[in-house]
Design a protein around this nucleic acid. Structure first.
Lengths: 217, 217, 217, 217
DNA sequence: CATGAATGAGAGTTCATTCAT
DNA sequence: TATGAATGAACTCTCATTCAT
């Protein structure tokens, strides 16, 4: 389950057995942090879950926080990959507009958040446990979105004047729709409509176009 | 600094002296939680900051968490009032469109978040400390936004078909723009442009209107 | 419910209102200590039960322990009176043997312990809270029993050679039968047989009399 | 000092070092509780006495109360063994009557109570700290005495009609004589006479046998 | 490398008592 | 005298981390 990305907060095991133990700890921690949150989770219950001795924890991680950071970075990387794959997939189909691509990125994220709702919360909790990780995650993500927006402007299917702020706004939409429809999903929610909803907003905003709007252009 | 709203997690003092003590504790806690977060904050350092004895804390609150919950509810109430006042203010000027009102609500929120950036974090941390408070805050807020959207549809200046999901999306935009431009403000940010940015998105989305769009209506 | 006995651990109120408050505190404390024991009982819950303010407690008692001591002494006095009345009652009927009197004293104690099972426990707890009160209670009681035994010897219906130790043994019997059949009474217990059981032991012990026993006298 | 009996309130150590630590805690706690009683004893002073770190306490016991319970059960077991050994010892000599055996059990108990006077108090305090342990101890003990009485009746040297109540009465005698002559021993007490005193009571009760008594049989 | 006992700083909380009103 | 807010010492318990085996 670990991504290949460098996770500097974990020590690199040299043996195969070591790699297995590290993996077990990582997975156990993801579950534990996801279920209980950072502060309620305890090192001993992580090791118990992983089926290794308490002391072994410190063979692989310098501290509880170091493991958490490693997890956040791993999650961040995976969220990034998921979104990129979502975009690439639609690009291969050809004819995709920039809005299509953003919707695809968003949909992939939403699917991911639904599948790993609890674990996903780890990223949010990093705001209070490892703020630098949190900030880095969202800044990186915003930058990536903004770069796509810039390309869209170049291609001509996005409006001029889109700025980094637009990227943050879009990211906020995605996160809160994810919160509402992935983490807090209710029976009866029409989750399949959410991507269209996003597309709508990106395409037209929420206002009814006024006659002047039409005439203006 | 306390709002009048019922804060059932705090015991009501009957004397003037008691009210002063409660207020001091509340203010000290807001600072302490804002600076350090829930888990790093300690009851004894809150009482030290407030200039009262440790035991006095428990005259007014059942636990550290109860105080935190009371604070979250108080913050939530204040954020709500701020947004409502923002809307009301623009309504009195007359001629305000629904988008104007949303931008006004958003701007007021942003101003508030900037002024109380640290304290505002308390609401976000409640996601992990008092999840029910957190959820209630955002569900209530989304409902309020959605009600405004419905009125806008009735008035005719918002598109048909706006749903609760649109409210969540707008809330997400506001929160993330608040995070970026209030909490993580950088020198050189053109914060005064943010309301316009929001207006843009709400008015037109991000896509360049296509010819078909025009013809369609 | 207070006996007239000097209870030096309680301050003497001068007004009628004061006497009423003292009484309320005393009764509330008896219930509270009886239900919860000394350490689980709290001054504030005693005052709450009594319907007076917390601070008023210290108008009447120097400390929680002082109240407890006063209660123990009061209980001790009442137990003593109960036993004495039991004896006196049977004496007025005439023809009562010394064993009859001891059984009467015991029966009265048992009735009392059954009626005030919980409150009675206060005396036992004093072993750990106010050991001097506890010791005084049992030493006094033993002495009283021993004095009755001496009279019985003089009258000729008790064996020569009975000592203080016999009094302690009898007291132990009474207390443990009280524990078993008053405090820990079970459905199906034939409590009415207990006095006869005591009489049996006092009269003959538990051994089957041997032929030598008979011949010896 | 630990008996082999299962003491489920203590975690079982797996290493020799662990066993030593547990033993030290147990012994220190027995002293501490014996001297100060449950509520005055503190976990930190127990660990200090044991020469281990505070935290080590919780490696072996869930709480202060759990240790206390373990101690009570251990004491209870030891008191039981002591009495049984007293009886067995006299049985090997042959010719012992049932009364001899009861006196032997009692004497052994008294010796034990004298040697561990303070520690023995722990069982009594359990009435208020771990009532179920207390009750179990005395109910078990009474049952054991009653079983011996039944055997004596079968053998023919104890009177018919002895019941559980007689066992409780005898237990009470033992406990109160133990209290008076072991815990509260005074200079000048003829402690060596106490077993004979008990034998007297068990053999004949306290009454002077009446002529009718003789004729009756 | 693995183990799990040992460590001890530090936390939240209680509550008998005091005292200003 | 009655009130109840204020006090702060003292307590039990947790748990990340260390370390001897």
């Amino acid at each position: 389950m670990l991504t290949k990305s460098a996770v500097p907060d974990a020590k690199t095991p040299r043996t195969e057995r070591g790699r297995r133990t590290l993996r077990k700890l990582f997975d156990a921690a993801a579950e534990e942090f996801g279920e209980k949150g950072f502060h309620e989770a305890s090192v001993s219950s992580i090791t118990r879950r992983a089926g290794v001795a308490l002391g072994s924890f410190y063979t692989y991680f310098d501290s509880k926080e170091a493991l958490f950071r490693a997890l956040v970075q791993d999650m961040s990387e995976r969220v990034k990959l998921v979104a990129i794959q979502g975009v690439e997939k639609i690009e291969t189909k050809g004819n995709a507009t920039s809005v299509d691509k953003e919707v695809a990125a968003f949909s992939s994220f939403l699917d991911f958040a639904r599948e790993f709702a609890e674990i996903y919360q780890i990223i949010d909790e990093s705001k209070f446990v490892a703020p630098d990780c949190y900030r880095k995650h969202y800044e990186t993500t915003a930058t990536r979105i903004f770069e796509r927006l810039c390309k869209g402007i170049e291609r001509g299917d996005l409006r001029e004047g889109l700025s980094e702020g637009h990227a943050w706004a879009m990211m906020g939409m995605a996160v809160f729709l994810g919160l509402r429809y992935a983490v807090w999903a209710r029976d009866g929610d029409r989750i399949d409509m959410i991507p269209d909803l996003t597309r709508d907003i990106l395409q037209h905003g929420i206002a009814r176009p006024l006659p002047e709007d039409i005439r203006r252009r």
